[in-house]
């Protein structure tokens, strides 16, 4: 299904685990350095109300004075677990795109604030870069370096799977529970 800007609470609450979405609008990259910076009280250089944060450190090069995205897949989200939920609440971030899923704290905040976790396919840097149609800006690049900067990407039908929703469901929690049971039986 299509998920188009503006990313309102109503649209996000309508999503459920297992849904395949295609996102159109502006999304912001933000990973380890950005999350720590915001958590430590740093001022966001962009308006994060009803925004989508993408856990991604892209390869972007300047060609003929223009930014060109060479690769842009997701990075592992679990590292942002301590920060994500509170930042979603504080700034009105509606959705997080990443890979590997997040933990119970983020899931709780998704329920509380009307948020969702969208799983992009890890390693699929070309398929995903293809859906970035324009680079609208870059922030904090001097401070954190290119992969850790906030890149403003205009995306068109960017694909992801809902793996944590605002109704308390998490595909990651489910797979972990089932595989752990199986693991115990293998160990005997």
């Amino acid at each position: 299904m299509l998920l188009e800007a503006p990313f309102t609470e109503e649209k996000i609450r309508a999503l459920h685990v297992g849904d395949l979405v295609e996102i159109t609008g502006v999304i912001f990259t933000g990973r380890d350095a950005v999350h720590k910076y915001l958590h430590d009280g740093g001022k966001p250089p962009v308006d994060l109300k009803d925004s989508i944060i993408y856990h991604c450190g892209p390869v972007v090069v300047k060609e003929n004075g223009k930014w060109v995205v060479k690769a842009a897949g997701p990075t592992t989200s679990a590292r942002e677990e301590p920060y994500q939920g509170p930042l979603m609440e504080q700034y009105g971030i509606r959705a997080v795109i990443g890979k590997g899923g997040m933990g119970p704290k983020t899931l709780q905040y998704c329920q509380k604030v009307g948020g969702v976790y969208l799983h992009a396919i890890g390693g699929a840097a070309q398929v995903l870069a293809e859906r970035v149609v324009a680079v609208k800006g870059v922030h904090l690049a001097e401070k954190f370096g290119s992969p850790e900067a906030i890149w403003e990407f205009q995306v068109d039908r960017f694909p992801a799977v809902v793996t944590m929703d605002s109704h308390g469901q998490s595909l990651h929690a489910q797979v972990l529970a089932e595989s752990t049971e199986k693991f115990k039986s293998l160990l005997g």
Binding site: C56, V59, G123, A125, Q126, A129
Partner: peptide
Amino acid sequence: YAFDVIRENIGMAKVKSQPLCQ
């Protein structure tokens, strides 16, 4: 679905001569 995207990505990276993963 994950495999489909992975396979498409492998082909695309080779053709475009760009990083398979960022």
